[in-house]
């Protein structure tokens, strides 16, 4: 397998406060995985707010440098790329951001954001050709060009704006799209359309996608593989069907049980209290989830559990799985489908 983008043992620290009392936030903690070059995939990254998803996205996009480890694009470390290489990288790996309003420069018509990449990346030789590219991209995401072009961002709905962002990413002919919560700001009924556009890109155009979200249901729906993050670490990873339908890490279990289901027979209020027992104040140098974990044992607090490969397509970082072999190399790609 050749790798398009490879994260190896990447960590990102943020520092706060005075030098002598410096507080360190480990936003991303020793994560390794990769996106294949030859086989289009959708990889989900899920986790609660503050678990480091956006930071990971910024690392993947080269907008932030890892404090440890490296991010490698086709054998080339992002940290030392020439201007030309970076330019190429920028085209091939495209972002979609969470807030579809803030992603538009309010000064320009929405056309601006679609025309610039064509010019910069020399995607068309004539005006007409450029026009055609734009129309084609818009249609791919289910937008009618006549009703979207020539308008200002605030004149479009959130769902339309977000799909223009998808179309923009698409225009650049990327091989990988990093989508950071692309649907969290749109209505539940519009989510479906945007996610379907993403899935079309993947299936029909062979574009790989990293889909970052805290919504397990949609992750389940679109992804092939999934990485569950907690406190900047991978706590569980593998094929999406297995991880979500039968979660093994207590945190994933908590996440799955928090999904509001339509099924009225499984009402939260009828279940045993799911409120986790928080052990206030105690700092864990081991598993970061220990203070909230209902199964936490003494050893959880003292040393961080490695990733255990519990199945051919799953790895879990929890001592409860210690009868399984430790995942070699810590790279979760090896358990992906």
């Amino acid at each position: 397998m050749t790798e398009l983008l490879k994260v190896s043992n990447a960590s990102k620290m943020f520092y706060d406060g005075p030098i002598w009392r410096r507080q360190t936030t480990v936003a991303v903690d020793n994560i390794s995985f990769s996106i294949a070059d030859d086989r289009p995939s959708i990889t989900g990254v899920v986790g609660e707010s503050g678990s480091g998803k956006t930071t990971l996205a910024l690392l993947l996009l080269g907008y932030a440098q890892p404090s440890k480890g490296q991010v490698v694009y086709r054998g080339q470390d992002l940290a030392d790329m020439s201007k030309q290489e970076r330019f190429e990288f920028r085209r091939v790996v495209q972002p979609i951001f969470q807030d579809p309003f803030a992603a538009f420069n309010p000064f320009y018509l929405v056309d601006h954001v679609l025309q610039v990449p064509i010019k910069r990346f020399n995607l068309a030789s004539t005006e007409a050709e450029a026009e055609e590219l734009i129309v084609e991209a818009l249609q791919l995401v289910g937008l009618r060009p006549a009703e979207t072009l020539g308008r200002f961002p605030h004149q479009l709905s959130g769902g339309q704006r977000q799909r223009i962002m998808v179309a923009r990413a698409l225009l650049c002919r990327p091989q990988l799209i990093i989508a950071d919560e692309p649907v969290s700001m749109v209505d539940a009924s519009l989510r479906a359309t945007i996610l379907a556009s993403l899935q079309t890109l993947n299936r029909d155009l062979g574009i790989s996608i990293v889909y970052i979200t805290h919504d397990l249901t949609t992750a389940h729906q679109v992804c092939d593989n999934i990485i569950v993050m907690y406190g900047g670490q991978v706590v569980e990873a593998g094929a999406v069907g297995r991880v979500i339908r039968d979660p093994q890490h207590p945190y994933t279990q908590l996440l799955v049980s928090s999904i509001p289901l339509m099924d009225r027979s499984q009402r939260w209020e009828n279940q045993e209290t799911t409120e986790p027992t928080e052990q206030n104040g105690r700092v864990s140098v081991g598993c970061k989830f220990a203070p909230r974990c209902p199964h936490a044992e003494d050893r959880c607090w003292t040393s961080p559990p490695p990733l255990y490969q519990t199945e051919s397509t799953r790895a879990v970082a929890c001592v409860l799985q210690d009868n399984s072999p430790v995942l070699e190399g810590h790279d979760v790609t090896s358990v992906f489908l």
Binding site: L61, Y63, F87, F97, N105, V116, R120, R168, C172
Partner: peptide, 9 residues
């Protein structure tokens, strides 16, 4: 949108 502009090359 600054990041988007950079992604646009």
């Amino acid at each position: 949108y600054m990041a988007v502009a950079r992604a646009n090359g």
